[in-house]
Amino acid sequence: MSTVTEMPMPEIRRGRKFEQVLEGARHIFMRDGFEGASVDDIAREAGVSKATIYAYFPDKRLLFTEICTSECHRQAELAEADIDPDLSARDLLGFLGHRIAEFMMSDFGRDLFRLMVGEVARFPELARTFHAHGPGLVRERLVTRLRALTERGELRIEDFDLASDQFVQLCKALIHDRLLLGLVEDISPADIERSVNGALEMFMARYGTNPGAA
Rank of each mutant, 00 (worst) to 15 (best):
E80D: 12
D84K: 08
V138D: 00
L63K: 01
D161C: 00
G198L: 02
D165R: 03
A25M: 03
R206Y: 06
Q169T: 05
P10W: 14
F29P: 04
G212F: 10
D191H: 05
P10Y: 11
A76G: 02
S70N: 09
M116H: 02
T144L: 03
R145K: 13
K60C: 06
H73A: 13
T209I: 11
I42P: 06
E158S: 06
R145P: 01
A51H: 14
I67Q: 01
P85A: 06
F113H: 15
L92S: 10
Q20R: 08
T69W: 02
D177E: 08
D191F: 02
H98M: 13
D111C: 15
C68H: 08
L155W: 08
A43L: 13
A173T: 12
L78Y: 10
R114M: 09
F29Y: 12
R152V: 02
Q166N: 05
S106N: 11
E23L: 03
G24Q: 03
F123D: 12
S88I: 11
D107V: 11
P124I: 00
R110Y: 13
T150R: 05
D161A: 05
I187M: 14
T5H: 06
D177K: 01
K60E: 10
E71G: 01
K17M: 12
I192G: 03
N210A: 11
G134P: 04
D161M: 01
T150E: 07
L96F: 13
S88K: 13
S2C: 03
E11T: 14
P189I: 10
R99E: 13
E102H: 10
E125H: 04
F57W: 03
L181T: 11
G97F: 10
H176K: 03
P85T: 07
D191M: 08
M204S: 06
I175T: 09
Y56M: 13
Q20H: 07
R147N: 09
A46N: 04
E11Q: 12
S88Y: 08
E66G: 00
G33K: 02
E35N: 02
H131E: 08
A81Q: 12
A25Q: 05
T144P: 00
M7P: 00
S2P: 15
V39M: 15
L181M: 07
L170C: 01
V21Q: 04
V4T: 05
D161V: 04
F57L: 03
Q75P: 00
